[in-house]
Amino acid sequence: MAHGFSSYLDHFGFKQRPFSLTPDPEFLFWSDTARGAYAMLQYGLSTRAPITLLTGEIGAGKTVLLQHFIEEADDDDSLSIALVTNTRPNTREILQWLLPELTQSNLSDESKFLKVQEFLIQEFNEGRRVLLVIDEAQNLSLEALEELRMLTNINLGKEEVLQLFLIGQPELRDHVRRKELVQFAQRVAANYHLPYMQPETVLHYISHRLKVAGGRPNVFSKQAAMLIHDVTGGVPRLINQLCDMSLTYAFAQDDQVVKRATVQSVLDDGIFFAPVRD
């Protein structure tokens, strides 16, 4: 492994790392479940659903799917998107997410709500809908979720002026089902849960990322891919990590193919850290 990193890419003919851990829409793999989740986001937007939920386990690919959706939606001049990526438990800053200048004011919560209502109606009158997207929404308190529901109640006649997309881990669904949030749950018009990948999907996922990076799609043997699935449970983030390490081992051994034995060597050396799964 004394060779430089550029040689690691050159060895396999890659133009870039195929298994970076940073979410990148360029590498988005359209599995059946990813297509289903994306179709649900589009459905929620086009039908003007008050609240749309997208959930999935940690590392299941929610963020990269969301990034792609927002990139596509940004081309729509009739849509204003507010994206919140860092939420905290018990937050009371819902209104300021939509209207940042409220952070500089000493208005009461009621006055801030009226200011936001004026903003939403103004956007609507100028031909724009407002979409508030909250990532890691499982961190929101019950109080914050109730405040969000109240915002989605703002409408002009039959037209709602605000749509809400909540993206989060599975516990978000549990929160929404609590009896304290029955009114919130009634406004959820679209929802989808993104599961982990099945074995055959993992094989196609690996080949896809290899091709996008400029390499051969069959660098990993099928047996290697099956072992990677078994160890990672089909979690994309863990698959990327183990594949990257396996490529490094194959390069160090001057192999052109990552075999099952290559992956096993990574596991035997204990450098791949996988969380305990149920």
Rank of each mutant, 00 (worst) to 15 (best):
V263W: 00
N90W: 06
R35K: 13
T33I: 01
L107A: 07
E57K: 05
Q183R: 10
L247H: 06
G214T: 11
I94L: 05
Q169E: 15
I239F: 08
I121S: 02
Y43L: 08
G157H: 04
R35A: 04
V130E: 00
I134Y: 02
V116A: 14
F5I: 11
T52F: 14
F165H: 04
L164Y: 03
L79T: 01
E126K: 05
I206M: 08
H175S: 02
I58E: 07
Q241Y: 08
L242T: 06
R177H: 13
Q253A: 07
L151Y: 13
R216Y: 08
R277T: 14
L98R: 02
V130G: 00
I134W: 00
D32F: 08
F29R: 07
S46W: 05
E159N: 13
A49C: 15
E93V: 01
K211F: 05
A189G: 15
G59V: 04
S80E: 07
G157D: 03
Q138S: 12
E26Q: 13
R129K: 15
L95F: 15
P18Y: 01
F184K: 01
A250F: 14
V188K: 04
E101S: 14
A137T: 04
S105F: 06
N191Q: 12
H175A: 01
R237P: 04
F165W: 09
Q67C: 09
L21W: 05
R88E: 14
L142F: 12
E26A: 10
R149I: 00
G214A: 11
D269S: 11
V202I: 08
N218A: 03
V64N: 09
F5R: 11
P18M: 00
E147H: 02
A144R: 00
I70Q: 05
D230P: 09
I58T: 09
T152R: 03
L172H: 09
D268Y: 11
D77F: 02
T55S: 12
Y249V: 10
I121K: 03
L203V: 12
S105D: 13
L66E: 08
R149A: 00
Q198I: 12
P236W: 09
A252I: 13
L131S: 04
C243I: 07
V212D: 01
E123G: 00
R187A: 01
G56Y: 00
F69L: 05
A225I: 03
V84C: 10
V64P: 05
I167D: 02
K115H: 13
Q256K: 15
L53Y: 06
A49Y: 08
L66S: 13
E180W: 04
Q253T: 05
R209L: 04
R48D: 02
L65V: 07
T33D: 10
K112I: 07
L162C: 03
Y8T: 06
H204R: 12
Q96R: 03
S265D: 07
I206G: 04
E72M: 11
E72R: 14
Y8N: 07
H193S: 14
I70H: 03
I239P: 00
Q253R: 09
Q16I: 10
V84A: 09
L210H: 01
Q253Y: 11
K15T: 04
I239H: 01
A261I: 06
Q253W: 14
T262M: 06
L145R: 00
H208W: 15
V188W: 02
L21Q: 06
L238I: 09
T262G: 09
L148S: 03
R48H: 08
L181H: 06
L203Y: 11
L142T: 08
K179E: 15
Q253G: 03
N218V: 01
M1C: 06
